[in-house]
């Protein structure tokens, strides 16, 4: 697999088809992967893919607009890429997609090789990316049986509204408003995020629960029907707010209301940006 990625990367760089290959190499702890940019054939030898490649790299493509780029994607990353292509942030013809067959990403900590699959990967049924120019790895039979709901999601679903509100108050209370979740999210590419806007001032600059709450919920709404569940926000949150729970909940709502999963099909706009006369949402009825 690694060799296939390296060979292709070298070929693309040598021919000038792309000027950069975005992928992974082994991080400085010698175990966990980290994002890696190969600009030369020599650098391409560092490229690698394994079950620690947790990062979703597609957001880097936005800054490479106008420059042909190759990128290594997992199935979930590929869906995020399709979202960006649909939203005209990335041009399909500028990207060479190296799709990696994915067996799930494992929880890992610095300097240690983990063994358990990440929560999102336990419920994921996809092993092969939906879109690619080159597929690397041995294709697996799909889909594997879907694991039951993430245990935390199940607990939340069984709570009363008041209990849920208390749960989230406790979570959001920890928010530092550092915006790491936004910075890493492929869906968050606004020129000026609403939370930074002063005219109008949507969210006050105070660092207190109402502002934290507003920030996190509006961001979740902006991702409804767009979030592919890569859980990067949750991974980078320094205070471990389980943002994935919020996003997955909205993803399920959108799926039931509109029969839509983001990033599955090219050129199908997200439901919250289309208005159809015959749409019946069961809201207010």
């Amino acid at each position: 697999m690694n060799q296939a990625i390296r060979d292709k990367a070298k070929e693309l760089l040598a021919s000038g088809a792309v000027s950069c290959v975005i992928g992974y190499d082994v991080g400085s702890d010698g175990i966990n992967a980290r994002p890696f940019f190969a600009y030369t054939e020599e650098e391409a030898d560092g490229l690698a893919f394994d079950q620690t490649c947790t990062h979703n790299l597609v957001k880097y493509l936005i800054d490479r607009a106008g420059k042909a780029t190759a990128i290594v994607v997992k199935p979930c990353d590929a869906r995020a890429l399709t979202v960006l292509i649909n939203e005209k942030q990335v041009k399909r013809e500028e990207v060479f997609i190296i799709g990696a067959v994915c067996h799930g990403i494992i929880e890992s900590t610095w300097g240690q090789k983990g063994s358990d699959l990440q929560g999102r990967c336990q419920t994921c049924t996809q092993h092969t990316p939906l879109v690619y120019d080159l597929l690397v790895g041995e294709p697996m039979a799909e889909p594997t049986p879907k694991a039951p709901l993430d245990h935390r999601a199940a607990t939340l679903a069984n709570m009363s509204v008041a209990e849920r509100a208390a749960f989230w108050a406790e979570q959001f209370q920890r928010c530092l408003r550092c915006n790491a979740c936004r910075q890493v999210c492929p869906g968050c590419y606004c020129a000026e995020c609403f939370v930074d806007q002063l005219d109008p001032e949507w969210v006050g600059i105070r660092i207190d629960l109402p502002e934290k709450w507003l920030w996190n919920t509006i961001r979740a709404f902006h991702l409804a029907g767009r979030c592919v569940g890569c859980d990067e926000c949750q991974r980078v949150c320094p205070v471990n707010i389980p943002l994935g729970l919020l996003n997955h909940k909205l993803e399920e709502e959108v799926a039931t209301l509109f029969d839509f999963r983001p990033g599955v099909k090219a050129d199908v706009p997200a439901p919250l940006e289309t208005f159809k006369k015959d749409e019946k949402l069961g809201i207010g009825e």
Binding site: E87, C190, A191, E192, P269
Partner: peptide
């Protein structure tokens, strides 16, 4: 124009 990212959600809507 400074805030627009050219996502064209508006056009679809």
């Amino acid at each position: 124009p400074l805030r627009c990212t050219g996502c064209f959600a508006c056009q679809r809507a």
